[in-house]
Design a protein around this nucleic acid. Sequence first.
DNA 1: TATGAATGAGTATTCATTCAT
DNA 2: AATGAATGAATACTCATTCAT
Lengths: 194, 194, 194, 194
Amino acid sequence: MPRQVDREARRGEILAAAVRVFARHGYADSRIEDIAREAGMAKGSVYLYFSSREDLLRAAFDGMSTRSEELIAEVGRHPGDTSERLAFLVRSVLALLTRERDLARVLLDVWSAGARKPAWVDMAAFYQDYRAAVAALLDARDEDGTEPSVAPYEHATVLVGAIEGCVLQWLFDPSVDLATLAEPIVTLLVPRTR
Amino acid sequence: MPRQVDREARRGEILAAAVRVFARHGYADSRIEDIAREAGMAKGSVYLYFSSREDLLRAAFDGMSTRSEELIAEVGRHPGDTSERLAFLVRSVLALLTRERDLARVLLDVWSAGARKPAWVDMAAFYQDYRAAVAALLDARDEDGTEPSVAPYEHATVLVGAIEGCVLQWLFDPSVDLATLAEPIVTLLVPRTR
Amino acid sequence: MPRQVDREARRGEILAAAVRVFARHGYADSRIEDIAREAGMAKGSVYLYFSSREDLLRAAFDGMSTRSEELIAEVGRHPGDTSERLAFLVRSVLALLTRERDLARVLLDVWSAGARKPAWVDMAAFYQDYRAAVAALLDARDEDGTEPSVAPYEHATVLVGAIEGCVLQWLFDPSVDLATLAEPIVTLLVPRTR
Amino acid sequence: MPRQVDREARRGEILAAAVRVFARHGYADSRIEDIAREAGMAKGSVYLYFSSREDLLRAAFDGMSTRSEELIAEVGRHPGDTSERLAFLVRSVLALLTRERDLARVLLDVWSAGARKPAWVDMAAFYQDYRAAVAALLDARDEDGTEPSVAPYEHATVLVGAIEGCVLQWLFDPSVDLATLAEPIVTLLVPRTR
DNA sequence: TATGAATGAGTATTCATTCAT
DNA sequence: AATGAATGAATACTCATTCAT
């Protein structure tokens, strides 16, 4: 019997290596061989777990999107009113990306690749869901009937945009302190519950 | 010097063709031959005006950044108080990108490539200048000494981020109406002058 | 020695599986893994019985050539005169290949590989022996001293060629009825004993 | 303007080089690089004229089949009765292959590849046409109403088979004198006109 | 014996760039 | 200036074979 292997664990190791390499050189300049070396194995072994180089990038995106969805689900269980929940979301997302800097850097490649291949990764759906979740929270806040100055869906678009746009700036320029930006975003874009 | 004029015009045609091709397939999947064909000339001729494929992407970015800088300069000459100037900036940027959709799509590739090669295109500097200009406007507004709830530079980061983040969402999903998002951004993030 | 018997049986199973796979996809497009799966075992196990992929093809050829030699030997024991013996040979060969269609299809690969590697499989010797056996039969018929219109060895070459050439056509086109071709070959190429 | 090139001539040179290389090592063991070197050019240049390695093999077959068809057409214009025409066909085919030994050696690869990929090269159709042409000649001979001992189509199959089968033996064993075999084949398989 | 995970040599193909005309 | 034929470096992926268990 051959060496017993935990396929999922092995897959995870390779993916983690790939994320590190993608973060370092960018997807376009990352060679399968680099990834294999980073994972401490031979080129061919990568293909036992991933069907192609592109498959690795997709898996990286899947990981991110899964985490995001978990985060959004967690927000629903967060104590406090909707303002507090939105604040929690903003802080959590930025904290997550600050922590997982490599994953965040890969975002740039995922964005670029995802925009061209809707069949490959449904970026549109991902952001639609994201906006919808935020809009639902914003809307809940207005149950009292007060008319907000900005419609919830547009407000959600701007809030989501501000998060992503701050991440973008941080990726280009590490002197931008991402974690610290949570408070300005909350202050400016999360309406206080009356 | 008619030769000189010709040369610039030819360069412009090629760059425009490149932008169309990049927008369609993405930089990674755009071949020099595609660009030459789109520009109605032979492959080799492209090299008489651009030194490499990457040079075309850089030129596309240069075009964008020049336009942005012009826009920012224009903002300074815009009549009205700082709130109106900021509103004008937001509207102008979004209108520009809505109009130049191809250029906007190339942004994804520029971001991705720019993040890896600081020497190639100084994305950090570009956004630093962008933020600085916005922060200056925000700061001007507070000359009276009132303490704003969010420091100007952070506020600028969030405002710039919101713009870029809304563009991002629009690029993935054309059902997001970019031009229309100007008002929510203005309402939410441009402080009204007292 | 039951172990020994087991071993031979196992080898036979694998070889049979290989022949089926080779017949289906051709040697060039047959993977060791396909053969192992067809034989109901793991890839590595194949190597316990055959030293390489090529070894399987050689073994397939060996099987065919052994059968052919048996057939030729049997012809010597066949009752009747030489005409009848030759007729029996033609019919037997064509019947054998009709029955073992998979083996026949592998012939194409064996021919192709065999022509390049004399050391690997001695195709030249095989056909030399084949022709010699047929020529001997043809010659025997002429013991009376009558001069035949075609020398025995050349006649044998044409007869063997006709058999192989009919097989070839049948392999390309199943609508060619191989078994039925035995009679035309016999009529045209096996001289009647006077 | 770039160097002027006769595309057809260049294609021909490369194909000729490919045939030499295929003849030497067999298709399976021929590298594109070997072919390029044999043709005195760089690897990439081969792809300016042929879309793939397989395309080269197909082109080799196309060349052969075109020549064969020309030969068959020529037979129709050959003076003499049908016996003489058939004899001419047999002699011409064997002379052609004797002359073009490299092309003949590639036959083995073409047979092997062609049998697996009907869409790629229609071997069945090629031999059907071949048989039909020969059968037509055999049939013409019987216009007087005499019943032949073997039906024309089967006779044609055997005659075509004998030719191919002799070629096969010659390919394995150069001591088989192919050109010389024309007479035995004619004597044995081409019915004399009464 | 049997297994199947791991290996890494091997190669077809692509395409940016060059340069002779 | 313009062309497009030629180049050859670069690389994803395959798969026969090995070997630890």
